[in-house]
């Protein structure tokens, strides 16, 4: 039951539109004054949440295709990852614009002084090379190194979850960050398990 090229193109189109919905919703809320009492907080939380969702789904692709034998879904991975980057960029832009009004000096102070921001910033910076090398041309050019670069995601997501954890720690409300931590721990340990048990399928590991 593998979709053909045409069907995959269709699925990608639908996925693209769906992945834009959170952004369009935010935009709609902003235009109709429905961002609540604290719009900065709303946008910041919302874009942060969607970054974690998309990056987690991206990381889940490999385990899913192995466990469910749906190899073709790997063709959706790049788009999912790029949407993660898209929402991360919005998240960062919100911080830089609405929190600091592009005052880079102020922003650096924050980044250096507050571990919670340091970690989030580091995760965003590490996402940049992944986004930049996501084109077919870069894939070809980097060859075997491409995969090595893209393994950065194994570090980025834990950093992102730590950022979220520290944000929520103030509220003493850790159920959501712990859920994310658990999910990511499972996704990463599956990879380790497959690696150790040597049952590496030809197309696996990413």
């Amino acid at each position: 039951m593998t979709p053909d090229r045409l069907q995959i193109a269709r699925i990608k189109q639908i996925l693209f539109v769906c992945a834009l919905i959170p952004f369009l919703r935010l935009l709609g809320f902003a235009l109709t004054d429905r961002l609540g009492a604290n719009p900065l907080e709303f946008i910041s939380r919302n874009t942060g949440d969607w970054t974690l969702y998309f990056l987690s789904i991206t990381l889940a692709i490999t385990p899913l295709r192995r466990l469910l034998h749906v190899g073709w879904i790997v063709q959706l991975r790049r788009m999912l990852g790029l949407f993660g980057f898209f929402y991360a960029s919005l998240h960062f832009l919100t911080f830089l614009w609405f929190d600091h009004f592009f005052d880079l000096e102020e922003m650096w102070k924050d980044v250096l002084k507050r571990p919670f921001i340091t970690v989030g910033f580091a995760a965003f910076v590490c996402l940049l090379p992944l986004a930049l090398t996501s084109t077919n041309r870069m894939m070809k050019r980097l060859g075997r190194h491409w995969q090595r670069v893209h393994r950065l995601i194994y570090g980025i997501l834990p950093l992102g979850v730590l950022h979220y954890y520290w944000m929520k720690a103030g509220k003493h409300d850790l159920s959501q960050p712990l859920l994310f931590a658990l999910l990511i721990a499972v996704l990463l340990s599956l990879r380790l398990w497959w690696r150790w048990s040597g049952r590496r399928a030809a197309s696996a590991v990413s």
Partner: peptide, 22 residues
């Protein structure tokens, strides 16, 4: 005296200091 995770030097007045106000 800053909170360990954010500065207390400034604040956003709800309903007045919008997205585009410092």
């Amino acid at each position: 005296v800053d909170h360990p995770r954010w500065s207390q030097a400034s604040e956003r007045r709800i309903g007045e200091d919008g997205l585009f106000t410092r």
